[in-house]
Amino acid sequence: MKADVVTIGESMVLFQPYTEGTINYTPLLSKSVGGAESNLAFGLSRLGKKVRWISRLGSDPFGDLILATLSGEGVDISYAKRDDNAPTALYFKESKGYGDPNVFYYRKHSAASKLSSEDIEASWLDDARHLHMTGITPALGENTADFTREVMKRAREKGMTISFDPNLRRKLWSDEQAREVLLSLIPLCDIFLPGIEEAEFLLGEKTKEQYGKSFLDMGASVVAMKLGAEGSLGFFQDEVVNVAPYKVDKVIDTVGAGDAFAAGFLSRVLDEENPLAFYEMKHFLPEALKRANVMGALATQFKGDWEGAPTLEEVSGLMGGKQMVTR
């Protein structure tokens, strides 16, 4: 089966309080599926793209739930592997009504943390156009940084375009290791998708324009920088594109917003035959950032990491100011 996008990384079962409150006092927890790469896969699938999701899961009911959910959303799961000796990862999320939610990971020694370069199969990238990787995968285990690097190198050898979202998770590794590994992967991507806080973590205090130029100098062809409530910035060659945010009245849950942004951006990029060409990039980059802003903003309106992702018709209507007919 052909794929517009291949993405590789860990998905987890998410537990969070069924009603508002902290984990230690809530009597009921709801369960769903979360993880940067699967969040992106859900978003892209709803936007009409064919996505191949690859990972390793435990041979347990949690892995069954993840595969059933992805498959139900139209994502190709045929390359996912099951592990009889390691579990599917879990995580818990709680919101106190202010600031970002608290997240607690249980992913050490998980099935996906065991991924290594020896697991890579040439068929993973067959009949595929684009590879998306995140900075979470190299943080998972002893060999996952080399695994991530090798996958990106093989995609480049096949002539695929590659996007990389640093998706910084400081609970998973030391700041020094995270900075070293993430910076080493930027030269292997065409599209770099940092948030402004991640850019500061990687390069220290600079202006937004200096961040963009620095990442381009490292080898990325285009940088799409997430600015949260301020919108986004796009950088390519000597061009800088500033796109205003899509306004929402209240933020409910920020987890998954960056993945939704990436899905929105990549969905528009992949509409083009030669997206990295200057004349094409200059034409569609503002629209790609606008779609990304809408997707990211909508993701903050739901407690789940991806469940509120819109269809292409819905997001196009919102971008055009169209009021949807609901009844």
Rank of each mutant, 00 (worst) to 15 (best):
Q301N: 07
S267P: 10
L227D: 03
D64G: 05
A288L: 06
T26D: 00
L312W: 14
A41R: 01
Y105H: 04
P245F: 08
L276W: 04
S95M: 03
A122C: 00
V6S: 04
V248Q: 09
G204F: 13
S232Y: 09
Y79N: 13
K171W: 00
E197R: 15
R107F: 09
G141V: 08
A262Y: 00
L29T: 05
A145K: 02
E209G: 05
E10V: 01
H283M: 13
S184P: 02
G321R: 14
C189I: 05
M152C: 13
T22V: 13
G135C: 08
D127W: 05
H283I: 06
S110A: 08
I162L: 12
M319Q: 14
V33G: 00
L216T: 09
V315C: 07
V315T: 10
G317C: 08
P245Y: 09
R56P: 02
S55G: 13
V151R: 01
T137E: 08
F104G: 02
L285T: 03
R327Y: 14
P310H: 04
L115R: 03
F164S: 07
A139N: 01
L289A: 04
G159F: 07
D146V: 13
K208W: 09
P310Y: 07
L202H: 12
P194E: 11
K303M: 15
E150G: 06
M160A: 10
V251G: 00
E142V: 07
I120S: 01
E209V: 13
I252V: 15
S174K: 01
T134Q: 05
H132S: 07
L298C: 13
G21Y: 07
V75D: 06
S38P: 00
G204E: 14
L227H: 03
A309C: 11
K208G: 00
P245I: 10
A299N: 11
W173N: 06
H132Q: 12
A155D: 09
V255L: 00
D60T: 09
E273L: 12
R107C: 14
I162G: 02
L65K: 07
P17A: 02
L185V: 04
D238W: 00
A199F: 09
M12S: 00
S110L: 06
T300Y: 08
E314H: 12
F104Y: 15
E150I: 10
F215E: 05
S267F: 06
V240F: 05
G99W: 11
L115G: 03
M225P: 01
G21A: 08
D146T: 10
V243I: 15
D165A: 11
R129K: 14
A86F: 13
V13I: 12
E10Q: 09
I120H: 02
D119V: 02
M1T: 10
I191K: 03
K290T: 09
Y106W: 12
Y18L: 08
D119K: 01
Q210T: 06
A224V: 04
K208N: 15
G204H: 12
N274R: 12
G231L: 09
